[in-house]
């Protein structure tokens, strides 16, 4: 079973600070990590490899320093790592990111399964997995909290607020996973050392993938960010509406009507 795991290097904090003048993220002093749900996707890939055999390839689009996240993934157990790194990829929105990742996956050739985290800590859009599935023309299951494979069939529990759906699809497919699917393993000291001393992270650029600059990065993006800012928290009163989903929705509706907001 050949499995591809897409992962992103993100700042390992919820307390993201922004440069007030440029609007860019202040990375100084903030350690970078593999996006937590992507770690779950990698863990699932490794568990499936242990069960069915095969190969796990991790792939990430990012700046040169994202190599660290891929080295971590190799230490954790991935067989191969590919960094999609090119100045032309900078400023990509989720569409351009999916397009670049999809192009690299096509270049890799045969695979049975693509696994992604559902969302990233920093972007939190949840768009890359589904867009990637569309670009690769794959069936997709999102928000999976359980995945198992029997022959050519993949079965998954897809979780949502009030329960879960049991779904199944033929392989190849793309699945995005949630944090509850498993507990990611931590590599031993010698696995960490091996990932740096004995393993390779391949770097692929736009030219290698045969991509034109206007189709990737900022130029290939369908959306443009006009401003990024951190909301200022005021001193307002916070009220919690409790109860079932329906009670909470009714309660919210009543509050909004009370203030003539709807």
């Amino acid at each position: 079973m050949n499995i591809i795991v897409c992962l992103k290097q993100v700042p390992g904090t919820n307390d993201v600070r922004l440069d007030p003048e440029t609007g860019s993220l202040i990375r100084e002093g903030v350690p970078s990590i593999i996006n937590p749900e992507d770690r779950n996707a990698l863990e699932k890939a490794l568990l499936l490899r242990e069960e069915h055999g095969g190969n796990v390839v991790v792939i990430s689009m990012g700046p040169p320093q994202a190599e660290v996240a891929l080295r971590d993934a190799l230490a954790i157990g991935a067989d191969e790592a590919i960094l999609l790194c090119d100045k032309a990829f900078a400023g990509a929105d989720t569409l351009a990111t999916s397009f670049t990742l999809g192009s690299a996956i096509k270049k890799l050739g045969h695979f049975d399964l693509v696994l992604c985290g559902t969302k990233t800590l920093d972007g939190n859009t949840g768009q890359v997995g589904p867009q990637l599935a569309e670009l690769l023309d794959l069936p997709q299951i999102t928000y999976a909290r359980r995945v198992e494979i029997q022959g050519e069939i993949l079965k998954a529990e897809r979780v949502f607020e009030e329960g879960y759906e049991l779904m199944e699809t033929r392989l190849p497919a793309l699945v995005t996973v949630t944090r509850e699917i498993n507990e990611p393993r931590i590599p031993s000291i010698d696995q960490i050392m091996q990932s740096y001393r004995e393993k390779e992270v391949k770097t692929w650029g736009a030219a290698y993938l045969g991509l034109y600059e206007h189709s990737v990065g900022l130029d290939g993006s369908a959306t443009k960010m006009s401003k990024i800012y951190k909301p200022e928290f005021g001193k307002g009163k916070v009220e919690f509406i409790e109860g079932s989903m329906e009670d909470m929705a009714q309660g919210l509706l009543a509050k909004l009507k009370e203030r003539n907001l709807i």
Partner: peptide
């Protein structure tokens, strides 16, 4: 980088 990775993990 290896030592940073050890610290991180």
């Amino acid at each position: 980088k290896e030592q940073e990775a050890i610290t991180r993990m």
